[in-house]
Amino acid sequence: MNNPVTSATYIRSLSYSLRRRLSDFLDPQGRWRDVIMSIRNPGGEPRYSQHHVRRFEGLLAQGCSPTVELLNDWGTTNSTVGELVDILRQHKLLAAASVLFPGMICK
């Protein structure tokens, strides 16, 4: 990708390699579960239910990366990198956040 990633970048525009690197940080120890449960619709209600989370677990059993599948799925809304980074910060997943913003100052 030639365009640099900013807070306003749509998640659906993220490159393949960035998605892979995010999954390296979020797949282990089920860290993606913290992320998925924090995703909210514009109305404020959770986007994914417990049943939905189980579908992603099923994909994990098939050898798919739940993080990559989640980014595909959530990316179909006009969700942005800023929203994802806010959630990553909230759960102190700063290594994953720094994949998106390499220069990010970690507090």
């Binding site: 939905h52 579908r55 989640l70």
Partner: peptide
């Protein structure tokens, strides 16, 4: 391009 890939939850 947008609709062919299957999604876990999204349409």
């Amino acid at each position: 391009l947008y609709l062919n890939p299957k999604n876990a939850v999204a349409a």
